[in-house]
Design a protein around this nucleic acid. Structure first.
Lengths: 346, 346
DNA sequence: GTGAAAGCGCTAACAG
DNA sequence: CTGTTAGCGCTTTCAC
């Protein structure tokens, strides 16, 4: 039993018929005697036969029934949820997922895209970094005629479907909310790498400041990273600098939680001294020590729509309709971390 | 440019050489004139050539450089972290990940395993459900001679490598901790589906109760599910039943957080009236409204070790050493949600 | 109903 | 150094 995998050849030999008969029988195609068909199926089962999808795909230049998903990471934020929803939408249609993480590294990103193309994926769902190498990768995808859907982030220069969140408005609303509470020195904790999302949120933040008549200073944007630990570090840096902000608008929830941790540790009251707002409104934020104000993002919708857009392109490859763009609405969820008015009991 | 993907045939034609020359040149194998080689590489680049890994694999019965990862879900708990660490360990070695979720459904699980085998994965990392269909799937994998590593959960009847957590001891310690605080009516919120992990944690819980001389009642185990909402529901059910527990040992953190939410909503003090303990000690639990006592699980180690074990088997397929089992230690992290002694200020 | 031949993209194993 | 042949597993012709 140590020998290699069973092929239809083995089955054919065992049943004393030709390859084609076996192929037809197993595919459920017409043109095989019922009795023979049963026997073939039984032998296949016994021999532990598993069809070789790659040979199949090669033989009829058909599809691998596999799609690539390229995301920055899985550690925090909404990507696990998005991914889960992509998988739930795709797997009932027979597609499986080749997962790639870029960690926002453009070089790895290019490698990952190449790896997907080499593996003959039928389509790609992608959250790109916003750098030159990304465009190169995008062009490679398009050259191969491979359907592409941008997820959460996009490359403006590339014509492809996209499912996005209205990051600009989300950030605008969040900043506006802080201004409405009377805060004036609002700092923005941002990621190190530039992405579509980072840019849009920054734009929203800046626009709200401008509309609120607040003069902006360059030091107010701190490019520190996007994980919880960066929130802690960033907040410490901020407190040690002479900036003395009265509010922090964070690029995402982990940053905001990290900021809150540092503030709590150093005995600075949130929101009384410094208000904090996050982005994504992941479940944890509701039950956080200081319930976090955050911009809700429809992670489920992101995953579902991306999968559906890709499916429509894959099912009908001739679909030559121009790129579609779906922009999901955000929704500011106000909780304790940003409400100055309401004092805390105790 | 709408035509199909470039093949080495196209390159050969464009350069006026044979297929083999192109193949050799692109593989960096010896036996090609330097000048020709350069030209071929350039043409390949220009034509947007992407090697066809599946044809390659087919041609030399070599590997697809792809491994399957089968997990229950991505929504909560530690699986995103595990997955991320698998990816970080595998991708530098050239392997990519085919991701499958079972949602603890044995039927889907079998489909997913088949899908992976059809796609010729070089190995599988798998968190199985503990039911008959799982064994069938496991046998299929072994029949194909496909390296297999169990992750976090295992099938005792199947001989394969496994990376596990010492769930028994973790659960024992957690329950013991509650008993030490003087609690006697300790309820266990458990998932609906039976898995290795569910069984081990239940065993640990029961053993601690027995060692503590506490008489156990069947109603103390509530099989409700494994997500946050189930924690909420479960806690409500519990409160409405006449059980009046003084502590809850939860199968995982989301359940525990959910339970805490319900308790808070209904004005029942945690830990004064009812103590709560979770399992996994994910980051959120530290900054939860009521910092949660939980059993730390080394998610990073789980991912890393699983990847490494699989790598060693894939690199040397002849490796006939008997199944290895790596059991990672747990560590009880005591926080506010279970400490009766320390009263809360306020 | 069934089988034989050719080919998908690529590479080993030989030849020149 | 380079080209030819054969074959990986399977399917689509096209015959019988």
């Amino acid at each position: 039993m140590d020998s290699n995998k069973t092929t239809i050849k083995d089955i054919a030999a065992a049943c004393g018929v030709s390859l084609m008969t076996v192929s037809r029988a197993l595919q459920g195609k017409p043109g095989v005697g019922l009795e023979k068909k049963r026997k073939i199926e039984k032998v296949a089962e016994t021999l532990g036969y598993v069809p070789h999808r790659m040979a199949y795909a090669l033989g009829q230049k058909s599809s691998s029934m596999t799609v690539g998903v390229v995301i920055p990471q899985l550690s925090n934020t909404i990507f696990p949820t998005i991914l889960q929803n992509i998988e739930s939408s795709l797997s009932p249609n027979g597609y499986r997922i080749l997962l790639c993480c870029t960690y926002d590294n453009p070089i790895k990103e290019f490698h990952e895209i190449s790896a997907l193309l080499e593996r003959q994926v039928d389509g790609i769902i992608w959250s790109p970094v916003l750098e030159e190498d990304s465009e190169k990768a995008a062009r490679l995808i398009l050259e191969q005629n491979c359907p592409l859907v941008f997820l959460d982030r996009m490359l403006p220069s590339i014509a492809a479907d996209a499912v996005l969140v209205d990051d600009f408005t989300g950030a605008y609303d969040a900043t506006r909310h802080l201004l409405d509470q009377g805060m004036r020195r609002i700092v923005h904790l941002a990621p190190r790498t530039e992405s579509y999302v980072a840019r849009e949120r920054r734009r929203g933040y800046l626009a709200a400041l401008a509309d609120g008549g607040v003069e902006f200073h360059d030091e107010w944007i701190l490019k520190i990273g996007s994980e919880l630990q960066h929130g802690r570090e960033g907040m410490n840096l901020l407190l040690n600098s002479g900036l003395s902000p009265d509010a922090i608008f964070c690029f995402n929830d982990p940053l905001a939680i990290g900021a809150c941790m540092t503030l709590t540790e150093r005995g600075i009251a949130v929101p009384e001294k410094i208000a904090v707002v996050g982005f994504s409104a992941t479940i944890e934020t509701e039950f956080a020590q200081i319930p976090l104000t955050s911009v809700f993002q429809d992670a489920i919708g992101l995953g579902r729509h991306a999968a559906e857009m890709l499916l429509s392109r894959m099912i009908n490859p001739e679909l030559k309709i121009s790129p579609r763009k779906k922009i999901l609405k955000t929704n500011l969820i106000v909780r304790q971390s940003s409400i100055k008015i309401q004092g805390r009991s105790c």
